[in-house]
Design a binder for these strands. Structure first.
Ligand SMILES: [Mn+2]
Ligand SMILES: [Mn+2]
Ligand SMILES: [Zn+2]
Ligand SMILES: [Zn+2]
Lengths: 147, 147
DNA sequence: TCCTTATTGATAATAATTATCATTATCAGT
DNA sequence: ACTGATAATGATAATTATTATCAATAAGGA
């Protein structure tokens, strides 16, 4: 994300916090800035480590508490990867998927394809389950890491 | 899986162990039996807990070591779930996906649909990534938990 | 059956997450 | 702008999960 894009996301998130009765504090802003500015999905520990380079670092407990809040508000979600789970990424609007580079971790957001809806209907008929969500993630190597 | 089906899987796995120079021991057999007989994806801790009810329980270190070996042999894989990750499930042959009940955790194996291949080709052209794997998981409620 | 050595299990060490509580800082109300 | 109620922080303790260590054990080829 570009710096101005990060600011825009931060403002949206701040509105959501206030609408739900949460205060906007410096630690929370720092966590949100780190997440929104990152090119890769970060773990709680990675977010904490990045904060150590700031003028005023975070408490590890505040990192976990902020992530819990952001997830409850639906502003972030967990990205699951082979051999390194629980990365954090802003929630996607609409029907999108994740493409992740195995080498550098860089992520791309992919438009969802409509065919999956028909697939889901078939699955529900076949199994008797009611499907309310799905995850689709692609793994591979990015252009930079291939060359 | 039915008991006889479990036995069949266990024999296949035992062959794989011996072919790779691993010994078939009682702890390893117990871990494999627990995994193969389970209706839900289990965590390492859950596998250990189940073993406590057996005549001769497992050491927690042996659980982790056995899982590491089985994963290296490609016999099991990690199942990632919202709010409870790193469940263990036997590796699927061919192109299949997972359907997981949010309430009871029961899993169903779903045939993969061919449309995803075309989707992947489009993604590669669009992003410059080379895609070598994908995960597709469906979440919902099973027939039993709906009623 | 014997022997080599891979494997186990008890436990120590490390890492990650959650709980506790005195202190601090946000922000609604004036 | 100031004040006060209290939400939130951060240091740290407690808990939980995972990995490392090593003497004792057992698998399986000879
Ligand atoms: Mn996961
Ligand atoms: Mn989709
Ligand atoms: Zn890359
Ligand atoms: Zn169910």
């Amino acid at each position: 994300m570009t710096p101005s894009n990060v600011e825009q996301v931060l403002n949206t998130w701040q509105d959501s916090l206030h609408q739900h009765g949460y205060r906007m504090t410096r630690p929370r802003r720092q966590v949100m800035e780190i997440i929104a500015a990152s090119e890769t999905a970060l773990t709680p520990q990675e977010i904490y480590q990045k904060s150590l380079e700031l003028e005023r670092s975070l408490g590890i407990a505040s990192v976990y508490r902020t992530l819990e809040m952001l997830e409850e508000l639906g502003l972030i979600q967990q990205i699951h990867q082979p051999g390194g789970c629980h990365g954090i990424w802003p929630t996607l609007e609409g029907h999108k998927h994740h493409l992740i580079c195995r080498d550098c971790g860089q992520m791309q957001v992919i438009e969802g394809n409509v065919d999956i809806d028909g697939y889901i209907t078939a699955i529900e008929k076949q199994t008797g389950y009611r499907v309310d969500d799905h995850w689709l993630q692609f793994f591979g190597r990015c252009d930079g890491c291939l060359n």
